[in-house]
Amino acid sequence: MTPQPLTTIYKEINSSKISVDIYLPPRNASNNHTYPVLINIHGGAFMLGHSRMVSMAQIDDCLARGWIVVVPNHRLCPGADLLNGPMADLRDFIAWIYSGNLEGFLQEEVKKEYRVDTDRVMAFGTSSGGFLALALGFDTPHPPAAILNFYGAVHFAHPFWRKPLPHVQANLPRAGFEPAFLQKVYDEYPIPTTSGISLEGQAQQSNKPDFSRPRDAFALTQIANGTVLDAIFPAGAGRLEDIDPVSRVTSSFPPTFIVHGDSDRMVPVELSRKLFEVLKGNKVECEMVEVEGEDHTFALGMEIGGKTWNTSRKGFEWLEGIIQ
């Protein structure tokens, strides 16, 4: 059973207090032992979700490997654009770790010492969190040692990102929503760092959208209409190619593993194939597995020991090999 996390604030900006959940593995008896750190970033199309909406089974698996798992929140779009909100927060978060703040917090809160191995900090995320993990690989003074990306949003030049998604539209009210109702997300202050749903585990009743909430309605409307990029990175925020990992990979990019379902309707697998092609072209150490029959956001619904679990788990085994 997953232990209860410790929680602390790693950043405060314009009254938004941004927290991180910290899960600790069983303590090694050696006084010289240091612990690798996995940054686990939640999904939610950059507009939804929070740190408790991640796979606890995956956290347990990582704790069994002797890793500290940290699950940060970040400010949600559209109150802040992608670059100056989520990306900035995650870059500040990894700097918080490298600056000794994680270890300092643990020394104060945990009587048994946990020393952080800052040479073995890894980044992992699902969907939008996969993008944010990849975004730590460029324009970051001290990138992670390795990145694991589950079906992350990439390759923004692809025409898919401007296409409506009929299977999402089918779940919205036929009449849509009043524009004034949707615009209420821009009035939220401070900018929220959590929302009631993510896009992971939509089969769970507790994670169904509530269209009486402007944020749920706004986010699902953007996804359905093919306007997510306009919502999270509006005109004037910058150039999409400057933040797209497909455009920013160089030979110095961290080793990267990609996991993607071959039946994904929210982020088609061909987008990850393009990223993989670019990684290989730049001679970055990389691998990719395609999970047969899986649509988007399968991480929370996996059966431990099942085919999807075993296939996707190869990513964590690969991380373990990289940091040894």
Rank of each mutant, 00 (worst) to 15 (best):
G130H: 13
A29R: 15
I323N: 03
V267C: 11
G44E: 06
I68M: 04
S198M: 05
A219C: 03
A157H: 11
L300S: 04
P78E: 02
A180W: 09
W67T: 00
N310H: 02
F233A: 04
G293P: 09
P214C: 02
S198I: 04
P143G: 15
E294Y: 06
N28L: 10
L172I: 10
K274S: 10
I59N: 03
A64K: 15
L82P: 05
G152Q: 05
I9E: 12
F105I: 06
Y186S: 01
D230A: 10
L240I: 09
D210E: 11
P25G: 15
K112N: 13
N40H: 13
P192F: 12
P144A: 09
I13E: 15
T126V: 15
A57W: 03
L220G: 00
I41K: 13
P25S: 15
E290S: 09
E188N: 00
I94L: 10
E290Y: 07
T2H: 05
L106T: 10
I13P: 03
G66D: 03
D187F: 01
H158Y: 13
R313P: 03
P255H: 07
R65F: 02
W318L: 00
I232L: 04
F211T: 09
Q222W: 01
M288L: 13
T118S: 10
W67D: 00
P141C: 15
S198W: 03
